[in-house]
Write a protein that binds this DNA or RNA. Structure first.
Lengths: 228, 228
DNA sequence: GACGATATTTAGGCACGACGAATTTCAGAA
DNA sequence: TTCTGAAATTCGTCGTGCCTAAATATCGTC
């Protein structure tokens, strides 16, 4: 089964399911529908088709999760997407707020060969500028030691921001607080049940809403290699 | 009317019609069908749709020719195609026998902005490596002084190869005769009705079949600027 | 066990583009 | 002029692909 055997719409569904599966839970129909801006009925229909192709396991009423093949295809598209974004920005100077939509179209049509050449041109990066991991050509994710969301992080140990969701609004918000990729910080207090979170930044402190906190990933703050 | 308003299939039809219109004649249905490997019935159907959009003028039983809008769109796709080919070869080292199929897919999805950036990266070339003119962004062709096919060329005056059809077989054939882009030559004799053509190359001579001769374009051999 | 939220099935629609077969038109030969 | 074969068109259909609203089914919870 290779990508040319499925439509671009199907590829988009697979990507969405991957994104919504993070916590080991199956992706709910409604979440997929919202993400792709289609009706729940459309999602049910598509899940049935994807299940017939053995790209997802569809437990009715329980959502969908990717099969090994589906996951491989989803990661292939995500790899394309992130490499294209990087390449356009780096090699052609396309502004960061425009690379996403361009990549959204290109990711479905580039050949594996071209992808390999773009990656090589970029020095085979493992992470994109937001810290998101770039899947490898074999369909696996690069290792992300100890990574978890800020929501899940324990208080009192030194951390480092390894990834931030690619959302302009969030990026602006964090920028205003002096937080970005690589920023060292430490959780001071965390209120339960979605209260704000206090983190120490250098010698200052700041409060973050829970919304933001679960869209930031952190890892223990020890020296580590290449995270582009 | 812009490209996003029409399907990629329509875009391919417009390109084919442009290619088949060279001599000022309308493109025959059968030629379009052969080129695109579809039935004549499909072409008739599509011509009707394109005519409704005022992209072609369809004189029934007499073939189709592009309207101003149709021509602009066709040239836009051709521009995309040639720039992408050049860019892939030059910036990413994609071998020449593979750029075509890659460009065929990419030409339909790149934005005008990206196209502009690729062109700039290449130094805004006016001709591709086969000497084919690259349409400008305003939808016009760059000037090609005195260009005509070798079949049409008068005997006895110094000429220069300005363009060769992009067909691997033809390229190999000409290579074997020492003919390429920029080669100076002169028609010695030409037999009427499709006989072979004798040309002088430097101090030697060679015979070319008429098939080849009308897929080579030449211009008077005087010094000229930038033809990449 | 009934309710609201969530999901699925059903039935249908629409855009797109292709095809074969039947028919019409054209242009050149007789 | 009339005939004829090639070319083109129309007609009816098919198939893919995706979407939707409405009706129905299921799940989890009180």
């Amino acid at each position: 089964m290779d990508r040319s055997a499925i439509s671009t719409a199907m590829q988009d569904y697979l990507k969405a399911i991957w994104d919504l599966t993070r916590a080991g839970e199956a992706a709910p129909t409604s979440a997929i529908a919202e993400r792709l801006e289609v009706s729940a009925a459309s999602v049910s229909g598509m899940l049935k088709r994807l299940a017939a192709l053995e790209l997802v396991v569809h437990e009715p009423y329980q959502g969908a999760r990717l099969t090994v093949t589906g996951r491989r295809l989803a990661l292939e598209m995500i790899r394309h997407h992130r490499l294209i974004e990087l390449y356009l920005a780096e090699a052609l100077g396309v502004p960061w707020d425009r690379v996403h939509e361009e990549a959204e179209k290109l990711e479905h049509v580039i050949s594996e060969d071209l992808e390999r050449r773009m990656a090589a041109h970029l020095g085979d990066p493992h992470f994109d500028p937001h810290g998101a991991p770039i899947p490898r050509m074999d369909g696996e994710l690069p290792p992300m030691p100890g990574s978890r969301t800020l929501i899940e992080a324990e208080a009192g140990s030194p951390l480092r921001v390894t990834q931030v969701d690619d959302d302009p609004e969030l990026l602006r918000y964090l920028d205003g607080h002096g937080i970005g990729l690589g920023t060292p910080l430490e959780v001071v207090t965390r209120e339960p049940f979605g209260g704000p979170l206090v983190v120490r930044l250098g010698r200052g402190e700041c409060r973050l809403g829970p919304e933001a906190a679960h869209r930031i990933r952190v890892a223990p703050h020890e020296p580590q290699e290449s995270e582009s």
